[in-house]
Simulated assay, not measured.
Amino acid sequence: MGSGSVSYSNLKNASIAFLVPLPSILFYSSFLSAINGGPKSSSSLWTWCYHHPLLLANLLFFFNVNLLFWIIGLIQSSHWMIDPYWTVIPVMLVHFYSTHPLAQYNWLRSRIVILLTWVWSIRLIHNYLRREKWQWGARQDWRFTLLSQHYGTNWCWASFFAIYVPEQVLLIGLSVPFYVVHSVNQPLSIWDLVAVVVCVSGIVIAYIADTQLHNFVEHKNKGILEKGLWYYCRHPNYFGEQVWWWGMAVFSWKLGNGWGFVGALANSMCLAYVTKLVEDRMLKQDSRAEAYRLYQNTTSVWVPWFKSSSPLPKCKDA
């Protein structure tokens, strides 16, 4: 494929990515305008949207992400869009909950959570674009490719349930603390500081781990990455991501809504499965399998810890 074709494809996918959330944005803007116009201008639809913010968030996600993203994925034969939008949807949700007419909250806590979410999002979208060499939609997640091979001709309909429905459960579940923060008005406490420290720690850990992995891949190093944070655990990037979401759950717990942990727990369970997929993939590479088995035996999975034995031997070049 020539450079001109690549540039056109990149511009096309970038345009799609920026335009695709417009249905939700326009619908929500219409709702706010109608509600602000007073009871006389409010239809039964707007009244329902007013009283059910969580259900409205799920409906917007279902139609705008599950259905629209799925249709675009089928047309393009690539479900790439969910990757960059994993970083964008939480930002949209935190602003949705903060601007909903039923919202009531401590102003400073709200701004802290919104700022943290933006910082987390910028870090993650930067990592996505850096990893993809600043191209939009150049490829879909390799796990989706494996699933498509598994389902074969059924992938057309199975992709909806294998990709998009679980994404809705995870992203809406993970964003529950955003809803809680903007539905309970309580003064700040020491637990808010704890939550901030945990969230910032997660962002920093994930950024350092992803940068170390990026540099390792860019320099085409052989063998196993076992320097920096990767010396102390096998998946520090996953650990940092979990710490971030568990930090958000602390905000929810502090406000008397322990059910805000459900999303973080589901995400940890999902990452446990993803970890298995990644490690199985590493073990299928003949040039790395032996070294990676030793890495597994000597290095913690997620939580950074000291190695249980001597460092890995050097892996011969393939």
Rank of each mutant, 00 (worst) to 15 (best):
V119T: 04
G2T: 08
R123H: 12
L32T: 14
A264N: 03
C199V: 14
L67W: 11
Y28F: 07
Y207K: 11
N66S: 13
H95N: 08
D141C: 07
L11K: 09
S78N: 12
S33L: 12
L11P: 00
P53G: 09
R130G: 01
Q285F: 10
V176S: 01
G173F: 04
Y292S: 01
L174F: 06
G247E: 00
K133S: 09
Q242N: 11
P304N: 05
S78F: 04
F63H: 02
G137F: 08
N58I: 12
P90S: 07
L60I: 05
L277T: 00
L116A: 03
V217F: 01
Q285P: 06
L26N: 05
V301L: 15
G228R: 09
A14P: 08
S189G: 13
N64T: 11
A138W: 03
R139Y: 10
G73E: 06
S310I: 11
A34C: 09
W142E: 12
G247H: 00
V278H: 14
Y292C: 01
R143P: 11
S29A: 15
P39T: 10
L55N: 15
L19W: 04
S29W: 13
K316V: 04
L146M: 10
W244M: 14
G152C: 02
N237Y: 12
Q135I: 03
G202C: 06
S9N: 14
P90N: 07
I112S: 10
N66F: 02
H79Q: 12
N215S: 05
Y231I: 04
W191V: 00
I35G: 04
I205W: 00
W305E: 00
F306G: 12
T87M: 12
K133R: 13
K284F: 14
W230R: 05
G73I: 03
R109P: 04
L146R: 11
I190K: 05
I205C: 08
L265E: 06
S9G: 10
L312F: 06
R234L: 01
S110M: 10
T298D: 04
Q168H: 11
W136T: 07
L59R: 10
A272V: 00
I89S: 05
V184W: 15
V198A: 02
P53Y: 12
I72R: 09
F61C: 04
L45P: 03
S183Q: 15
S148K: 11
L312T: 12
L225F: 06
L188T: 03
S41E: 14
L147T: 08
I122D: 13
V65H: 13
